[in-house]
Design a protein around this nucleic acid. Structure first.
Lengths: 224, 224
DNA sequence: CGGCTACTTGACTGTGGTCAATTGGTGTGG
DNA sequence: CCACACCAATTGACCACAGTCAAGTAGCCG
């Protein structure tokens, strides 16, 4: 792969000039790892951040009894852990690959130096971190103020928009993850998610296939 | 009040030189508002951010049925809504004063201009936003992975450390807000908080007064 | 065909939310 | 100084959402 052109395709670095990109590309290291590989664990000192080239990575928290909350599911082209570089420099969550994956690793030191000289990069990073912030505020809203059905609805709507279309009847949404993981993403249990899908199917709001959801009544999704 | 010296006291701007500070101070506007005054509402376009000089401000989300989740309680010397300036420029939550308050308002336009020219300010901001991010990750962890007693324990421990001492037996922690608000902060109901305080008192972990909590068994707090 | 994993379904339980009544503390005014 | 009103906090009774455990089913791959 051509690292520079891949990096240019990430949202974080898309605003930079070719010169800036290649300066950054020169600092990186390519990492190829199998599925279920731990990239970093909550609390560890952050030594850099990642851009995902291929595969899939979950970023999550876990409590003592093993319950897991997925904060984010990263897909190719996304960067993650940028924010861990600042204010303490520890990872606030853990990350693990879900499939065999290829990543570009950006070491903290050189990147931070570069950051001090490059205000444009700095602003890009700022807006990247802000996007994370919004995502987390949404997650808090979901967990605290919505029941499971409403969370699932909100998730499906977000997935629609992420794919660039407004929710219309007949739209099909690929889930891109196992249902058990979707459950952990929504902060619930697999069994509860299964029942919620059932209930919504019975109400004619949607139809569930193995790995995709068919929207039948988009207006009902919006309402909850 | 002397705006420049107040601003220099905020974490966000403490790293800047006197010249930079006074350039920024010149852009601000002082706002004095009564209790229960709405500073901004979720979704509105962000026209600037705030530094709190005196009083108290809650930043929160609300759902249709009126349930409220407090994301942050701001005290004098803190800045908030900096992050809303970027990536869309809408407030992700609402803010309301809890007492009569005096604030310094920083308009978005001039500040963003200044930001492009001042990499140091940019880095400060970056680390400020990152701190917010960590706070929100903690909140998600609380809501999703801990029961009410564990959340309350975590809150008390955080309050201890914020005041600069490790939790020791006999330590007294001022709550600084009504119990109903603490409940909304912990993502629970006032009644449940009351019962939880009871239970922990009965177990000899702490003792509750009107507006402060006396820690009796710090090790039990850490354990949950 | 057998075995594995993901998912579903059923039965039960518990945490915590809601509603309503009560207590207690504080400040006001007679 | 007491009576009253007001608000915050508490307590009690009830209930619902969702988590857990266990068994069963379906789909997939060797």
């Amino acid at each position: 792969m051509n690292i520079a052109s891949f990096l240019k395709g990430t949202k974080l670095l898309s605003g930079l000039s070719d010169g800036e990109i290649s300066a950054i590309a020169a600092m990186t290291r390519i990492i190829e790892v199998p599925a279920r590989h731990v990239l970093f664990e909550e609390g560890r000192t952050c030594d850099g951040f990642y851009a995902l080239f291929s595969g899939r990575v979950k970023i999550f928290k876990q409590n003592e009894s093993g319950k897991e909350q997925i904060l984010h599911m990263a897909y190719p082209g996304e960067t993650f852990a940028e924010a861990a570089l600042f204010a303490g420099g520890r990872f606030p969550a853990s990350a693990e690959t879900m499939e065999e994956s290829t990543l570009v690793f950006m070491p903290a030191g050189p990147f931070l130096e570069r950051l001090h000289e490059d205000p444009k990069l700095c602003i890009e990073l700022l807006s990247g971190v802000t996007t994370w912030l919004r995502k987390l505020v949404d997650l808090v809203e979901d967990l605290s103020l919505r029941d499971v059905q409403a969370r699932l609805s909100a998730f499906l709507l977000r997935e629609c928009r992420k794919r660039g279309f407004e929710p219309v009847a007949g739209a099909s949404i690929p889930l891109r993850m196992r249902k058990a993981d979707l459950a952990r993403h929504l902060g619930t249990a697999g069994e509860t998610l299964s029942r919620t899908f059932n209930k919504m199917s019975a109400e004619g709001i949607l139809r569930v296939a193995r790995d995709e959801v068919l929207i039948l009544k988009p207006e009902e999704l919006v309402r909850s």
